[in-house]
């Protein structure tokens, strides 16, 4: 029973990781850039939401809305101001730049908000739950998982069914040729980066609603998101969801076995998948996302 409970809680935890992973995977798939500040951008959104709701007293929905719109803007600025300007040097210089950004965001947040853990207060909803056959399911984690599934489904539909999605996939395949058929590759990259950072913001807000957040939690979010993407298989959005759940279950079950080793067990499962199925559990070469 304890094990079953751990599996259920792990799946719910996976929802949170899937949200972080969605933006990371989108950006890597299209721009071929790993944004090392992805986790920190999520934490930035979390603290911005906490600051607006608890500090400035804005209604929660308004605070979250403002933050998410702001994150889209930050994403656009990240591309226009950083990623689009670091081309031409060493191929990986833009990734190094995002690492610099990660250091800046994390440490600046620590100075402004101190190292104290904080959370986004959702009132009764944050703690409410239902009991299903003896296993308690929190409404909030279930809602986060639902949001993650919705976000991934929406992303999948947008990429496969819309003109914008076709342009994104064409640019991901071959940006030079995309320009030759009338696609503004630079603008496509900008919109994708904005979306990815917006998703990071959504993930950060969900994280702050579900648990205590510290300013330097960004790197661990990045690592979990990355593990989810690799476990599931690059290029498959459903694989990302599966990978996030596998990671969540591994951490949750690991914590049951030994309370201090949940994260380690998650890492070990990741390394095992890398050793045995390097292309991921649901590897599909063709569909990019």
């Amino acid at each position: 029973m304890r094990l079953l409970d751990a599996v259920v809680q792990g799946c719910l935890l996976g929802g949170q990781y899937a949200l972080f992973a969605a933006g990371l995977s989108l950006m890597f798939g299209v721009l071929k850039v790993v944004n090392l500040a992805h986790g920190d951008l999520g934490i930035l959104a979390a603290f911005a939401a906490i600051g607006l709701a608890a500090g400035a007293g804005l209604p929660l929905a308004l605070a979250v809305g403002v933050v998410l719109v702001g994150m889209l803007g930050i994403g656009a600025a990240l591309h226009a101001g950083l990623l689009a300007r670091t081309t031409g040097a060493l191929p990986q210089i833009s990734m190094i730049a995002t690492f610099g950004l990660s250091v800046v965001i994390g440490n600046a947040l620590q100075e402004v908000f101190s190292a104290d853990p904080r959370a986004l207060d959702l009132g009764w909803f944050g703690t409410a739950g239902v009991s299903l056959g003896g296993i308690s399911v929190g409404l909030l984690p279930a809602a986060v998982l639902a949001v993650a599934v919705l976000a991934l489904t929406g992303l999948h539909l947008a990429l496969t069914r819309t003109a914008f999605g076709r342009r994104v996939r064409a640019t991901a395949d071959d940006p030079g040729t995309a320009a030759l058929v009338g696609v503004d590759a630079r603008r496509t990259y900008l919109v994708v980066t904005a979306l990815a950072v917006g998703l990071a913001g959504l993930a950060g807000v969900a994280y702050a609603a579900s648990s205590l957040v510290t300013p330097l939690a960004g790197p661990s979010r990045l690592i979990f998101a990355f593990e989810a993407v690799v476990i599931g298989g690059l290029g498959s959005l459903w694989g990302t969801l599966l990978g996030a759940m596998v990671l969540g279950v591994a951490q949750s079950v690991g914590s049951v076995v030994d309370p201090s080793s949940g994260v380690l067990v998650g890492h070990l499962v990741f390394l095992m998948v890398l050793a045995t199925r390097p292309a991921g559990l649901l590897a599909r070469a063709r569909v990019r996302a």
Binding site: F28, K32, V33, V34, L36, P91, Q92, M95, F99, L222, I223, F226, V230, L234, L274
Partner: peptide
């Protein structure tokens, strides 16, 4: 590959 190696 490349960027993933960094996080790996």
């Amino acid at each position: 590959r490349a960027g993933q190696f960094a996080i790996g």
